[in-house]
Design a protein around this nucleic acid. Sequence first.
DNA 1: CGATTAACGCAAGTGAATTTGCAATAGAAT
DNA 2: ATTCTATTGCAAATTCACTTGCGTTAATCG
Lengths: 190, 190
Amino acid sequence: MPEHSGVSRPGGRTARTRDAVHAAVRELLAEPETEITMAAVAERSGVHFTTLYRRWGNIESIVLDLAVERVTEESPVPATGDLRADLTEYVHRLLASLRQAGTGTLLQALLAAAGQATEAEQVTQFVEPRIEQFQSLLDAAEVTRIDGLRLVELILAPAYLWAQFGAPLDPDADTARLVDTVLAVARDPA
Amino acid sequence: MPEHSGVSRPGGRTARTRDAVHAAVRELLAEPETEITMAAVAERSGVHFTTLYRRWGNIESIVLDLAVERVTEESPVPATGDLRADLTEYVHRLLASLRQAGTGTLLQALLAAAGQATEAEQVTQFVEPRIEQFQSLLDAAEVTRIDGLRLVELILAPAYLWAQFGAPLDPDADTARLVDTVLAVARDPA
DNA sequence: CGATTAACGCAAGTGAATTTGCAATAGAAT
DNA sequence: ATTCTATTGCAAATTCACTTGCGTTAATCG
């Protein structure tokens, strides 16, 4: 028996196939015409489609898996204490990442999964760290009139909405507006 | 030849089957356990599933069709000139409608379709009227520092995001916050 | 090093979703 | 009335997503 509890064989074959699958999905997402199907991912990754079904169950879970990974790695939240500077840097990077090809598909997987109890745990992995990071940002700037959840509403909500509508915001043109909104509310919440 | 251009036979059989299908989908959406499939809609509506495929092509289009209809009828935007009162009334009704059973499915259809060029026209039918109504509301209140698009970001975006995340906002507890946000930004946009 | 077992590859099978050809029906025009 | 044609109903066919059983590979432990 390899292990009684915890993750089994994390650095071996399991990790290799997961990486191969993630890489394949990234490639497919970058090709707007290509549909993301189990068959396509299997072919591109070299991993048998039976394996995909056994480990993930359906294509949405695979995409969600990647979505959580990618969003986390691409959008670190700064917390230097300068509210405007931190927000500006973060929002600018966020909007830029939302303009990459395939972002719509990723967001759809994320939000579709969010609604279903089955995948709720995976989504929590995405939302909670972000709220905490936002809270850290606010704490560093000694802002107490709004909280992390409010930042989600004022920044992530509009950014994601436009991205999903196929009209992602422009990092250079729209960052200031979103940041100014937060500053206005932080100054005058009621 | 019935007609050369324009809508053909709008009040006849075509309209009846569309109504039957819409009614069936409304029923199915109200039953949380039931999956919305072509077969289920066909059985419930009495319309043959072949007809569904021919007219809509897929189940998503059918749900989108209903989503556009329902959102429009359920969320009229008041414009009496009292900004706070108008917003409060509208947001309260919006949040209440987002708590109805099946709303998640409807939103998903709406936002999924939004990303695809094929359905873009149908989605425009939903977004544009809403922006215009918001603009009327602002005009009535003689507010010039923000526009209809901004209201979409500050109200619809957070409301839809939480609804999609399976945690729709509470009409009584959360309306004031969303309204206050708008008022704060209208007062101090930068 | 050898035993153990989780994860994988493979091939066939199952079933639901979707398509297609043809006949029947019902608005609309003449 | 009758004619025409868009729309629907029906049944058969087909495609595709997904599952299952079994043999193989490879990672971990003693």
